[in-house]
Design a binder for these strands. Structure first.
Length: 759
DNA sequence: TGTCTCATTTTTTTT
DNA sequence: AAATGAGACA
């Protein structure tokens, strides 16, 4: 049986057209991954060696899954290659995220660019802390130079291919900086880059940029890679940025066997520099490119596909396509209004419970921001519904894990100053901020790394006491010893030795609090992960795995990459971004409110359009049913905010929603305009019409009156309570009050958002 | 130095 | 709510 039979005609065409450039525009659920997988399998069948194929995916998980599918496909392929069996071929595919593939290709040639092979990868936290330090050194106000903002601007510059030098002569950019009062931005950018290089470190963007620089710098390397990768495939092309575009273009030369797959309607990463023009202009860059459209959706019911289409058509420029489904009509979308975020979470949890016969894996609750997961989590737990949260602070972001990794990083790359700063204070060894400040100053002045200064404090004339010197030298000695052994042991044995010798393990074991025990367990967990990593490589025939290999993998892990082993039935909770590429029978989309979805930061039309695409992605994750909901009041940043329904709700054609049944019904099935609340607080009659402004007449009346501790208060959400603390006698709108509730303990409320009544 | 407390600020999505 | 920062204190 020919495996191509399993494809529909348009899929098959896209799979078998292998020479030259092709653009596959793949609507949501149209079997995009399938096409990519089969295309690679087809190439293998045609006798193309696996090592000549490069496939760039959006997550490592996607790469892994694709490899697995290719492996399962390959037995059915007739082997044209006598020697190596096709079943094994998948191992030699160059497959992964842009960042991980670049790291792999970059390491052996890092010297060309002035790095060593052991360069470390700075994650967002490292970069941010470096930026902070630079701003502080220069005495800049971090109210104006917000580390986060500076970082994303640097990233933008990098992703647009503008190095520090060019930045300083770009009038347009400088003007923008002046408007932001960031007169020294160009200098910060330059210093930042210099410090990265000095630390033998690359940030995420550097991995891509340096890959291009490498190919520019070495004709030989360039040709070698171009010859090696005869076929290049890029998944999720709509979310690639300018640098990625350049990189792929360069790698594919001169034969240009390049195949990109994507859906402009699902471009949701512009904040990360993704440029939708890459996919829109593909045919202009490659005039001979064949265009394939996959328009049949195999995932969702007709209603879901049509509803999503009606939404996305509100956007301007798109590649013309008609996504359709031939599955059953299916159930209408459901829209539910709730009084507040907790009621919303409870509503979702209750619905899941009612439908639990489908199995918990059938459900996903999607939201715009990670912060929304808390409430939902809480209500699910109350109803004993098992769930799994993706994103948020992942395992590798935990402090103790970052500390542990810091030791490993520094041992491998002694110039990794950010790692050093992390770990020098843990476990405590009497080296504090003041000392490190001096170390840092001297290091920068003498163009040495921190560890050098600590090892030889006299070389730079470090002004510290003899006792401190001793401590610094002891630390340096320890790291040097680790470093000497880093290539003598495999990753696991090395990590174990370092974490024991350094005192990290002992320090954690000393803390007998619940959190302390957790932390110790987490570090043990890290060791297990390293062990697993080494074993896995052994199975792949690599018998020596140094710690460097592990380190470069962990820093590039994505959110979806975690939690493979756990197969128990659970509801999935994640942001819409994280849900990209996934599907679930039943999808809940929570928080359909203005200033949340679309985000409060989306103001420009293009930004609103991106948010709309984001909702499109969310809806098209659903196979059978889609529930949308919003809350009128939401606890955000420590206080209550009022919310109005998302404008996007009006962008979805009304006819796809469940129609309102009867006005008097207790459970509210509602159309968009007459949303009735299903809350148990209906006794507050004033509630049914949600006020659009937070300050009502009642509030100002309260604001002008005098409240004392012990006065009673009624809050519209929580019911009755007692004021236990008033910060001042004279209460004004922005004052805080603390309210004691019998069920939920104490809450602090901003008076502006609390409706108070004298009880 | 290191730790604790109090106060202020923050806002998204992630390789 | 959570995270960060400043300041007091041992």
């Amino acid at each position: 049986m020919d495996f191509l039979d399993q494809l529909n005609p348009s899929q098959r065409e896209a799979v078998t057209y292998t020479e030259g450039a092709s653009l596959i525009v793949a609507g949501a659920g149209s079997g995009k991954t399938r096409v990519l997988t089969y295309r690679i399998a087809y190439l293998l069948q045609q006798g193309v060696p696996a090592s000549r194929i490069m496939a760039l995916t959006f997550t490592n998980k996607a790469a892994r899954e694709m490899k697995e599918r290719i492996r399962n496909l390959s037995p059915t392929l007739p082997s044209r290659e006598g020697g190596r069996s096709l079943q094994e071929a998948y191992r030699y595919l160059m497959m992964g995220t842009f960042h991980s593939v670049c790291t792999r290709l970059l390491r052996p040639h890092a010297e060309v660019l002035g790095y060593t092979r052991d360069f470390t990868i700075y994650d967002t936290a490292d970069s941010k802390s470096l930026i902070k330090a630079i701003c502080k050194e220069r005495g800049l106000d971090d109210k104006i130079y917000k580390p986060g903002a500076v970082q994303s601007r640097i990233s933008m510059a990098k992703n647009s291919g503008i190095p520090p030098r060019e930045y300083g002569s770009n009038q347009q950019l400088l003007r923008e900086d002046r408007e932001q009062r960031m007169y020294e931005f160009a200098i910060i950018y330059e210093l930042y880059q210099a410090r990265l290089i000095a630390a033998n470190a690359m940030d995420f963007d550097d991995l891509l940029i340096n890959m291009i620089r490498l190919m520019d710098a070495s004709e030989e390397v360039c040709r070698r890679y171009q010859e090696q990768f005869k076929y290049i495939l890029v998944d999720e092309y709509q979310d690639t940025n300018y640098i990625q575009f350049l990189l792929v273009k360069k790698l594919a030369e001169p034969q240009n066997n390049i195949c990109v797959v994507g859906d402009d309607a699902q471009s949701i990463y512009s904040f990360r520099g993704a440029d939708i023009r890459n996919i829109l202009n593909f045919q202009r860059v490659y005039p001979n490119a064949r265009l394939f459209k996959l328009e049949r959706n195999y995932r969702s019911t007709q209603t879901i596909v049509n509803a999503a289409n009606s939404l996305i058509h509100k956007n301007s420029h798109q590649i013309e396509k008609t996504v359709y489904s031939e599955k059953e009509t299916g159930e209408p979308l459901n829209l539910q209004a709730y009084m507040d975020d907790r009621t919303e979470a409870l509503g979702i949890a209750t619905r899941i419970q009612r439908m639990r016969h489908k199995g918990y894996n059938a459900f996903a609750v999607l939201y715009r921001t990670n912060a929304q997961s808390r409430v939902i989590e809480g209500e699910l737990r109350k109803l004993n519904i098992p769930y799994r949260i993706y994103g948020g602070t992942s395992f590798y972001q935990r402090k103790e894990i970052k500390d542990a990794l810091g030791y490993l990083r520094l041992s491998v790359n002694k110039r990794d100053n950010e790692a050093l700063l992390r770990i020098v204070g843990f476990p405590g060894r009497g080296i504090g901020e003041t000392t490190m400040k001096k170390v840092s100053t001297n290091a920068i002045e003498h163009h040495r790394c921190y560890l050098d200064v600590m090892r030889e404090p006299d070389d730079t004339g470090l002004d510290v006491s003899a006792a401190t010197k001793k401590k610094l030298q002891a630390f340096a000695l320890m790291i040097d010893q680790f470093s000497d052994q880093s290539e003598e042991m495999d990753a696991f044995r090395f990590a174990e030795m370092v974490l024991r010798t350094s005192g990290v393990m002992t320090a954690l074991a000393l803390d007998r609090s619940t959190e302390g025990i957790d932390r110790a367990q987490n570090v043990q967990e890290l060791l297990n992960a390293i062990h697993e990593f080494v074993e896995q490589r052994q199975n792949e025939g690599i018998d020596y795995t140094p710690i460097t290999d592990f380190l470069s993998e962990v820093s590039l892990l994505t959110d979806q990459d975690e939690n493979l082993a756990d197969t128990t039935e659970r509801v999935t909770l994640m942001t819409v971004h994280a849900a990209k590429g996934l599907e679930f029978p039943v999808v809940f989309i929570a928080g359909m409110e203005e200033n949340l979805f679309p985000s409060q930061f989306a103001v420009k039309p293009s930004e609103i359009e991106e948010e709309r695409r984001l909702l499109y992605v969310a809806i098209t994750r659903a196979m059978e049913q889609c529930f949308l909901s919003y809350a009128r009041q939401r606890f955000r940043n420590g206080s209550f905010t009022f919310a109005s329904p998302s404008r996007f709700l009006n962008d979805i054609e009304r006819k796809y929603f469940e129609v309102e049944t009867s006005r008097s019904s207790t459970t509210s099935r509602s159309s968009i305009t007459s949303l009735t609340s299903s809350s148990s607080f209906s006794s507050f009659s004033s509630l049914s019409s949600a006020p659009s402004t937070p300050v009502s007449g009642a509030t100002s009346e309260i604001a002008s009156s005098v409240w004392k501790a012990g006065d009673r208060v009624a809050h519209r959400v929580f019911g009755e309570g007692t004021v236990v603390r008033v910060y001042r006698d004279e209460v004004t709108e922005n004052d805080k009050i603390e309210i004691n509730f019998d069920t939920q303990g104490t809450k602090t409320l901003l008076l502006t958002h609390a409706k108070l009544e004298r009880a």
